[in-house]
Design a protein around this nucleic acid. Structure first.
Ligand code: SF4
Ligand code: SF4
Lengths: 152, 152
DNA sequence: CCATTTAAAGACTAAATACTCTTAAATCTT
DNA sequence: AAGATTTAAGAGTATTTAGTCTTTAAATGG
């Protein structure tokens, strides 16, 4: 469905959003918390900075940060930056040149689901997600935090 | 989303369903009509016969056929035979051990779409699809047939 | 200026996916 | 029995995806 790179990118961006600091967060910090390969994550985040979704800064106290408020970053921007738009054009029977004009027999129902998916990604902002995280004590890290957080 | 093998498998099975002959159809015939590599399609259909979705017969007048009436073969059987069930468990943030118990912030909306997708595949039979093909003059082959079929 | 910290860039390796090719086995026709 | 037709099986290759490692460049602080 989504590539690993895409999933990691989403998780990393969301993690940064939950910190809502002004400061840059080192990629190492993120990769440690999310249990993602540091070097792989570095490449993924490079893509996101190239797409102006994140900012980076080198040197001590450097790292990465959101390029704009979390309200203005939605999931589809990240997905499309990393995986392209193929997800919303590729399809279940994948006939050459198919589409609304020359639909295969699954087109109608399938494209409905596809656009629901797209709509979800379009309306899901990092702000919305991170708000829900704190509101419902959800978790995004690989560790044991979240619902039943450790008491000590 | 779906692997190539899965898409090819669906197309091939649907093609056989539209012929609704009692006879076995040679894989070569299918691969020619659908413009799929013969050898690759052979392997895919082997998987489907191993999963008792199709029958095969060797030698002259041999080929493959549906293992049961097209009404009793639905898309999800083919998808799961070829791609496994990973599609309905893997997910957008793919956290270790996540799920209804320990959901990520996208779980609720995402799992709704996921089950819609599953439901669609469960309720889509080869019979239904092939009926729609003839009813609306849709096309599944790679050639120029279908809506504006060649006049000569 | 030098050492340290950090991301950027790119070469490299590993694994999964998507094919291709060869050989074997079953079946039919003659 | 011989030869043709067709799937089965499995080895082999190519491409893509995933991940590692090394080197370079930018920034900071002493
Ligand atoms: S559902 Fe639509 S886009 Fe997808 S394969 Fe069928 S015709 Fe093409
Ligand atoms: S939507 Fe559900 S299944 Fe998917 S990553 Fe989130 S918690 Fe896991």
């Amino acid at each position: 469905m989504f590539s690993k790179a895409c999933v990691y990118g989403l998780r990393a961006a969301l993690y940064v959003a939950t910190l809502d600091k002004q400061a840059f967060v080192p990629i190492k910090t993120i990769s440690d918390h999310l249990d993602i390969s540091f070097h792989f994550l570095t490449k993924i985040l490079q893509t996101l900075t190239q797409h102006h979704i994140m900012l980076s800064y080198r040197g001590p106290n450097g790292g990465i940060a959101l390029a704009r408020p979390a309200e203005q970053i939605n999931a589809i921007q990240i997905v499309e930056a990393i995986d392209g738009t193929r997800l919303f054009s590729d399809c279940i029977l994948d006939l050459p040149g198919c589409g609304t004009q020359r639909p295969c027999p699954m087109h109608e129902q399938w494209s409905r689901i596809r656009s629901e998916m797209k709509h979800l990604l379009e309306t899901t902002t990092l702000a919305g997600l991170s708000e829900r995280i704190s509101q419902f004590d959800l978790r995004i890290t690989a560790d044991e935090g979240g619902l039943n957080s450790p008491g000590g």
